[in-house]
Design a protein around this nucleic acid. Structure first.
Length: 487
RNA sequence: GUGAGUGUAGCUCAGCUGGUAGAGCACCAGGUUGUGGCCCUGGUGGUCGUGGGUUCAAGUCCCAUCACUCACCCCA
């Protein structure tokens, strides 16, 4: 072996068959529900022009975007600029790997505008890249499962996405989780009501967002560091303490009253609150388990582009960071198209979901390969002729089947190898079978399904002499569970 | 970007206060001629992440470097 580093790049993974299968299964199950709700698939390139990505995710987002170098003459020219005044990380780059799937969607909507149906309901499942430092549940390449509704400002759309989120995760039988909901506008009003100027809003969010992890002291010092107004902290704590699941109607009313008073004088405060209440009401009417939904007035979420209701999925035992979330972003598309288009969306992190399921043993990774494998006791042209016709026949019956490439090892060895690969049945062909059918199969008019072969079911070792038609029927029977009886 | 921990066979790891490497699993070959999952026997496989230093002698001590893991930040 050479000294070449053969591990994948930091934070990125290879998926061997056993790991990939459950991932694909989870994707299939999610896709089914997306379609159930009437969403349509979309795919966009892995890369975007750098200017499309820049400035959409906040300062941190720009830093974590993977940049792709310019090429050819452009690169030569750019290299001369390096170090000069005004040159920066973008001097050498003109493309970037997408940071999420929402911004590419916004770009698509701006590009194809009128030709898309309105509302445009689309889902997209594909990788996104962030140059973050990897840790538990965090990768540099990860699959996002994004579901968005473009072209309506209806609160029903927001509510529907929350309902769908819970549906999907419930269907996957995830360990206990809950959805926390808040409203970005409400946070703005809160920040204003605390006495902060509008431009400090993102600092306010960042500080407040720490409440769960660092507690009050953490938030307070964070606010001081960021030079935010701390006069109304006491009220803020009271407010945060009142967060409640929405099935608790008295608690909810109390919270709503408190928020209402808090943001009374802040511009738009009451409307935002009304808007959020509407969403929560719709969530309930969509038959979503309301004990899983919490109104958390301190929930902030990081991405810059959110403007309305926002929500986040958290595990009740905190064994994993947020596995999904979303919100309304009514201004993002306008950046690309010039005219505002309302939109709202949700997204799931496939890696985190699959990791959780694996950790909780709810995903059984089972080996699987061809159902039937044909084994040879003796080599030679006749074997290939005979088994070639069997192969073709079984494929025609939609039964996966493969041939061995080595026919010189012992039969026991071959069976063992087949079993390890997850093969369920083996057909054994040796001198006896070849003697009886070896010549006949040369004639196309000889019905191959009439040929009798020796078939062994590996799960329980039962072995039979069957025609291929009988074999097909046997393969379709349920496979016995206990493999302890030796055949 | 900040902090902590780990780095010994394909995998999981052992190797006490320094004396030139071990186990289990996996893999390969056998336990007589067309039959697996148990058992038994034998075997392949490691310049102990990399580079430098201390020492008669380093996997074991020191420095550097890289990689991985975890936490902060941020998020899926």
């Amino acid at each position: 072996m050479s000294d070449l580093q053969v591990a994948p790049p930091r934070g990125m993974r290879d998926y061997l068959p056993d790991q990939l299968r459950p991932r694909l299964e989870v994707i299939e199950r999610m896709r089914r529900i997306f379609e159930l709700y009437g969403f349509q698939p979309l795919e966009t390139p892995a890369m975007e022009r750098l200017e499309v990505l820049s400035g959409k995710y906040g300062e941190e987002g720009d830093k974590l975007t993977f940049r792709v170098m310019k090429r050819g003459a452009e690169l030569k020219r750019a290299l001369k600029e390096v170090g000069k005044e005004g040159s920066g990380p973008d001097t050498l780059a003109d493309l970037g790997l997408r940071f999420d799937l929402t911004v590419p969607l916004a770009r698509v909507v701006a590009r194809y505008g009128a030709s898309l149906p309105r509302p445009f309901k689309r889902y997209q499942i594909g990788p996104a890249w962030r140059a973050d430092r990897p840790q538990h549940g965090r990768y540099r390449e990860f699959i996002q499962c994004d579901v968005d509704i473009v072209g309506t400002d209806s609160s029903l759309a927001d509510a529907e996405l929350i309902a769908l989120t819970i549906d999907v995760l419930t269907d996957l039988e995830l360990p206990p989780f809950e959805v926390r909901v808040n409203h970005r506008g409400l946070l703005t009003a809160l920040s204003t009501a605390c006495g902060n100027p509008p431009e400090r809003f993102f600092d306010f969010c960042a500080a407040l967002d720490k409440l769960d992890t660092t507690g009050r002291e953490g938030v307070e010092s964070e606010m001081r560091d960021r030079k935010l107004e701390t006069a109304k902290l006491q009220e803020l704590w009271e407010l945060a303490d009142m967060r409640t699941y929405i099935d608790n109607s008295s608690g909810l009313n109390q919270l709503v009253d408190y928020v209402s008073n808090f943001v009374e004088d802040a511009p738009g405060g009451k409307e935002f609150l009304g808007n959020l209440i509407q969403v929560l009401e719709f969530v309930d009417w969509l038959h979503t388990p309301s004990e899983m939904v919490m109104f958390d007035p301190a929930l902030a979420r990081g991405l810059d582009y959110y403007t309305g209701p926002v929500f986040e999925v958290v595990m009740r035992d905190r064994s994993m960071a947020s596995i999904g979330g979303g919100g309304r972003y009514d201004e993002l598309i306008g950046i690309f198209s010039g005219k505002p288009v309302p939109a709202t969306g949700t997204s799931f992190g496939l890696e985190r979901i699959v990791d959780l399921m694996v950790e909780h043993g709810s995903l059984v990774t089972k080996l699987k390969t061809a159902t039937v494998q044909i084994l040879a006791i003796e080599g030679g042209v006749d074997f290939v002729r005979f088994s070639g016709r069997i192969l073709k026949f079984l494929h025609g019956k939609n039964i996966s089947c493969e041939l061995p490439y080595r026919i010189d090892s012992k039969l026991g060895k071959q069976i063992q190898t087949a079993d390890k690969r997850g093969v369920q049945f083996v057909i054994i062909i040796g001198p006896d079978e070849l003697r009886e059918f070896g010549i006949k199969v040369l004639y196309e008019e000889f019905p191959i399904e009439a040929a009798k072969v020796t078939v062994k079911r590996l799960a329980d070792g039962v072995q039979r002499q069957l025609t291929l038609d009988e074999l097909v029927a046997w393969v379709k029977e349920p496979i016995p569970e206990s493999p302890d009886s030796v055949g």
